[in-house]
Amino acid sequence: MNVKILVLGLMISTVSFSQVSVSDGGFYFAKEYSKDVALYKAKEFVMEKVIGGGGSLVKFSIDPLAASTSGELTSLVYGCDEKNLSGLVLGFYGDQWTKLGVAYQAYAFKNLPDEKALEILSKLDSYIDKESKYLAADSDNNNMYFTYDDMTFLIYRFGSVKVRVFWNGFDSEWDWGSFYRTKKRLERKLKN
């Protein structure tokens, strides 16, 4: 009898202290993250935070471009002709901690209007191209970084080029293939 009460008490306390308010920090929670999940949640983000309200029907498009192999970063492009808005949304996924030190899986979105998105992607591509010898000279030991707005980009080489993006408590890895696909697909989308 005492064992049952003890187990029940432990289960209740674990559930009680591991729950976090969805509104706490503006994060959304997920057990798994993929391009499909990113697309599903990014629609709400673009609709509410980027385009904004409207009393009439508003049409917009959103397309997932690439997800990093780590699953920590997904890029999506959006467009709304009626409001003359287009750009790139970066979907971040990873571990976060509450003020009490409880870990949870969270994701959040960063909006980059098309001019900013192209500028960031061009800077990254340029730095990687210009400093390829430096990065290759001592793999995983030679690093470089720069800050753009509230994001920091760490560039290094471990097998292939890697870009870690630090933003709002997230530390997400963007592998070269996903970065390159994002850049090319965004440029193609914005030309149309």
Rank of each mutant, 00 (worst) to 15 (best):
A136L: 12
S172N: 04
S160W: 03
D150S: 14
D150V: 07
L39P: 00
E82I: 08
K99Y: 12
G55P: 00
T69H: 11
K49C: 03
N168D: 06
D150W: 04
F166K: 08
M151C: 15
G26T: 06
Y127C: 03
S34N: 13
D138F: 06
A103K: 15
L135N: 11
Y148P: 00
L100Q: 11
D129I: 08
I128P: 02
L10V: 13
L190F: 07
A42D: 09
F170V: 08
Y156P: 01
L112V: 10
S61W: 07
N143G: 00
S172E: 01
A30Y: 03
F109H: 04
S126Y: 06
W167P: 04
Y145M: 10
G26P: 10
M47E: 13
Y180T: 11
L10A: 14
V37P: 00
K99S: 10
Y104P: 00
G159L: 10
K133G: 06
L100K: 15
G54Y: 09
S75I: 07
I62W: 03
G26M: 09
V89W: 01
K183G: 01
K133W: 08
G71D: 02
R188E: 15
V89G: 04
N2R: 13
Y40D: 11
E48G: 01
R185Q: 15
Y156I: 04
Y33N: 04
E187D: 13
E82H: 12
S61L: 09
Y156Q: 07
G9P: 00
A136F: 08
N84I: 12
G9N: 14
N84G: 04
L121A: 07
W167F: 08
S16R: 08
K116I: 02
A42Y: 03
K162N: 12
L135M: 02
Q96A: 07
A30S: 15
L190W: 05
W174H: 01
V7N: 12
K123M: 14
L73W: 02
T74V: 15
M47Q: 12
S122R: 15
T69P: 00
G169W: 04
M144R: 07
L121P: 01
L73H: 05
S160P: 00
T98N: 10
D95V: 13
R185P: 01
N143Y: 10
Y156K: 13
Y40S: 14
G169Q: 04
W97K: 12
Y134K: 11
D129S: 15
T69C: 11
F29C: 06
A108S: 12
S139V: 12
L10F: 11
G55W: 11
I62V: 15
T147I: 08
S61D: 14
A106S: 13
Y107Q: 11
I12G: 00
E32Q: 13
F153M: 09
F146V: 06
K191T: 09
S34M: 08
G177F: 08
T14A: 08
K184P: 00
L85I: 11
A42R: 07
S68M: 07
S56A: 12
G159N: 15
S86H: 05
G53R: 10
F45D: 03
F146D: 06
K83W: 09
S122P: 00
L76Y: 00
